[in-house]
């Protein structure tokens, strides 16, 4: 495993900087002025009730949703409406979705090869080598030539992770990566994400898997009604929540 690189890099510049980010859907404010900074190599877990704006938040980071106000800076690139800037940011940021969203007409291997070939102009052989390496990393090299429909949910999600890794992003966003999975498959996916976390990549993960959060997160963030209510390191976050809303939320999900 590669050692965490953030010590070597200039610590001054955060990997992700959000300042007073607002996102509206009509009259509804999905994000009501969110401030968040993520250091390089930091693992942040975001949780919160549904509709709290946590998915919207990470989808704003790679411009799947366009924010209405505030500032978003990713690896030093300020996100604007300019198409070129958006593309630059997306090269830096990989994303894994709740519903995998694999390309159903391509094999696992081809799913991983598509973006490197189109974006970076890799040759077929180069892209295949790269894709196989990342499929190996998610322990799916033996399934490389299967189509998504032939893979289990957990396998599909691991392919989706490998696909994101193939663009060699410095930041990974996970949008509830395990909530569409059957319980027995959650573990294999979380296991892969934990292994990635150890490699030093910057990571934001929206999830309710509290065990995972404790093991992996440098910091936990609780969102409700479009704002960050509380944040802190994992241990304090779960054992000594300060706000009533977080206590209430934790009581509900931990039961």
């Amino acid at each position: 495993m590669i050692p965490r690189p953030h010590a070597a890099e200039p610590a001054a510049e955060p990997a992700i900087l959000l300042a007073q980010v607002v996102k509206r859907y009509g009259a509804h404010r999905a994000l009501a002025g969110v401030d968040l900074q993520v250091r390089r190599g930091e693992k942040v877990v975001i949780c919160g009730p549904s509709g709290s704006g946590k998915s919207t938040l990470i989808r704003c980071i790679n411009a799947l949703e366009r924010h209405d106000a505030g500032r978003i800076v990713v690896n030093g690139i300020a996100l604007t409406n300019d198409e070129g800037t958006v593309q630059d940011i997306r090269q830096e940021v990989g994303m894994v979705f709740q519903h995998f969203n694999l390309f159903p007409h391509l094999t696992a291997l081809e799913n991983c090869m598509l973006a490197p070939r189109l974006n970076r102009g890799l040759s077929k052989a180069q892209a295949e080598k790269l894709a196989m390496a990342h499929l190996e990393r998610v322990h799916l090299a033996d399934q490389a030539r299967k189509y998504p429909a032939r893979l289990s949910g957990g396998q599909q999600q691991r392919v989706a992770i490998a696909r994101a890794l193939c663009m060699e992003p410095r930041i990974l966003l996970f949008d509830e990566p395990t909530s569409a999975l059957d319980p027995e498959m959650v573990k294999e996916v979380l296991g892969v994400i934990e292994e990635l976390a150890a490699s030093g990549v910057t990571m934001i993960c929206v999830t309710h898997e509290m065990g995972f959060a404790r093991r992996v997160a440098d910091r936990c963030v609780f969102m409700d009604r479009g704002e960050i209510v509380e944040e802190g390191d994992a241990a304090r976050f779960f054992e000594a929540p300060e706000s009533e809303r977080l206590r209430h939320f934790l009581a509900q999900i931990l039961r």
Binding site: L64, Q87, M95, H99, N101, L114
Partner: peptide
Amino acid sequence: PHGIVEASEALGITRRNIFLWV
């Protein structure tokens, strides 16, 4: 499905290539 198009966008594939390949 919209999600698949979104996944392509998130991978930084250009709109033209998304149309052609996805």
